[in-house]
């Protein structure tokens, strides 16, 4: 093996360390009392405590936020699927000038600064009496989930071999049956990855939630960020526990999303 290869590998190992260590450290701090965290020389050996995690999990605000986050994320993802997948299929299978424009319109929604959407929406939801509600959050997030679902599902549908759809049509399937019974199941593996992406995007969203919720509809990122303001001192142990809790759902989807990236790129060359 060449020396340059060894250096290269060592460098990559260092990079993996830079990725993992801060997260590992945060997880470790979640089990420390504040006195073990606030030391000038970092402590690796300490008496673990479950108080931080117990505190976070016992808070009503955290449980409410967890419920809010789950309901809001999942509902808007489902709306994204229901409206996004058929649209993506139409764009993928009926390419013409119009669908091209539609695809660009969907992409350009991502150009919009979230502030520009959140400020007027705050006023709109206030006027409608829906401010700080599930309905308002789900409607707002649906804009994101529908567009991201379309954007990621178009290539997934394009990868479905046309021959299969033709064969089904010869067998007497109508266009809708081809979509439901052929294209959807064949593309499903990739589509699940796309759906997981839209879930992570919504689960992690902060700015819009910060502007559109103040109480009962607060999502988990907002409540976690407020943990830094409990009392006078920053309760780092509790904050770290909250950060870990918030990060678990996206990380659970890691395998799924990695598989999604593989299928998005590997098929390009075929």
């Amino acid at each position: 093996m060449k020396a340059s290869h060894i250096i290269g590998k060592a460098f990559l190992a260092l990079m993996a360390f830079i990725v993992l260590f801060p997260i590992f450290w945060t997880a470790l701090n979640a089990f420390k009392v504040n006195a073990d965290i606030l030391v000038t020389t970092p402590k690796f050996v300490f008496e673990p405590t479950f108080d931080n995690i117990a505190y976070v999990l016992s808070r009503n605000s955290v449980m409410a936020a967890l419920t809010n986050s789950l309901v809001i994320s999942l509902t808007s993802v489902v709306i994204g699927i229901a409206l996004g997948l058929p649209a993506a299929y139409a764009v993928a299978r009926y390419p013409n000038r119009w669908t091209e424009e539609i695809q660009f319109f969907v992409l350009s929604l991502r150009f919009l600064p979230p502030v520009a959407v959140a400020i007027p929406l705050m006023v709109i939801w206030l006027n409608l009496g829906l401010y700080d509600s599930w309905t308002a959050m789900i409607a707002t997030y649906s804009l994101l989930t529908i567009s991201i679902t379309i954007w990621l599902a178009v290539p997934a549908f394009q990868q479905v071999p046309k021959a299969i759809e033709e064969a089904a049509r010869v067998d007497g399937y109508g266009a809708y049956a081809v979509f439901l019974k052929i294209a959807l199941p064949v593309a499903m593996k990739t589509l699940i990855g796309a759906i997981a992406f839209s879930f992570v995007l919504i689960w992690n969203e902060f700015l819009i939630a910060l502007m559109l919720t103040t109480g009962k509809a607060k999502t988990l990122p907002i409540v976690a960020s407020e943990m830094s303001q409990v009392g006078m001192d920053v309760p780092w142990g509790i904050l770290n526990a909250a950060v870990i809790l918030l990060s678990i759902p996206p990380l659970l989807l890691l395998g799924l999303l990695s598989g999604f990236m593989n299928s998005m790129f590997s098929n390009k060359s075929r």
Binding site: M15, A224, L246
Partner: peptide, 13 residues
Amino acid sequence: LVFLIPVLLPRVS
């Protein structure tokens, strides 16, 4: 797999 972790973390985290 390792390199995908940071982008999946919520920005807040």
